[in-house]
Design a protein around this nucleic acid. Sequence first.
DNA 1: CGAGCAACCTGCATGC
DNA 2: TGCATGCAGGTTGCTC
Length: 271
Amino acid sequence: MPELPEVETCKRGIEPYILGYKIINSIIRTPSLRFPIPKYISQRIQGLSIQHLERRGKYLLLNTAKGTLLIHLGMSGSLRIVPEFEPCKKHDHIDIVFSNQKILRYHDPRRFGIFLWIESDIDQHPLLNKLGPEPLTKAFNAKYLSHALHNRKVPIKTAIMDSHIVVGVGNIYANEALYYARISPTKLAYLLSPKDCDALVNKIKKVLAKAIKVGGTTLRDFVGSDGKPGYFKQQLQVYGRAGSPCYRCQTTLVEIRINQRSTVFCPICQA
DNA sequence: CGAGCAACCTGCATGC
DNA sequence: TGCATGCAGGTTGCTC
């Protein structure tokens, strides 16, 4: 269940177990993720230590002296720290074994995820070099958004889910942020007022920050034994609540499709 | 530029 | 119980 908060939670969860530790061994059981995982990865990363962990949007970067492991969890991926010799479950595709006897284990039923080894400048990589700002930084502000939406004739929901505009806003949080900002998901992006932009920026930040906080609770389960799904589910205002009353005005929430993605909103609050 | 669609996969809920 | 269908938290890349 990886949206930005989940990836951030994942990063914080694995960091204490892998930062500064040396890669002893790695096992690629299933090389067929979204991009094929080259066999040479194992020998390239052997003996290298993790110097730094970073998240960019939903990408996780594990930096070493010789290159960077780029990981994306796709729709169904997860990372866990497991003890040495822990038996594999179905869809446990990759193990990275560290010098502290811990294993970083990648699990991904749908295999939409990404696992790449990059030796060239990471900022130049095609997957990263066109990304928009991080939503939780100052670079993502009303002025920036307003400018980025100029002449964009797509629904605002499509725009905020576009990683070239801002990274890390997935379907759930796009729905939630638009609800809090009281903006219709179908409103064309270029028609947003400066006030709309300001509200939307603030609500995106708010909703993501809140989810990261809650994700911190998920974190313990996640590292210890198994990832528990959707702890912040209980906080959702609109996503998954179509047909139920709006918490603000009791109007029945409506579900439509925007770009084949489930979109739920309040037709009154988000007129 | 943008809408719409297909693609990459499996698991789960639903309906017959 | 089995089988077909549709849906799912992401992203790229192709048409038109």
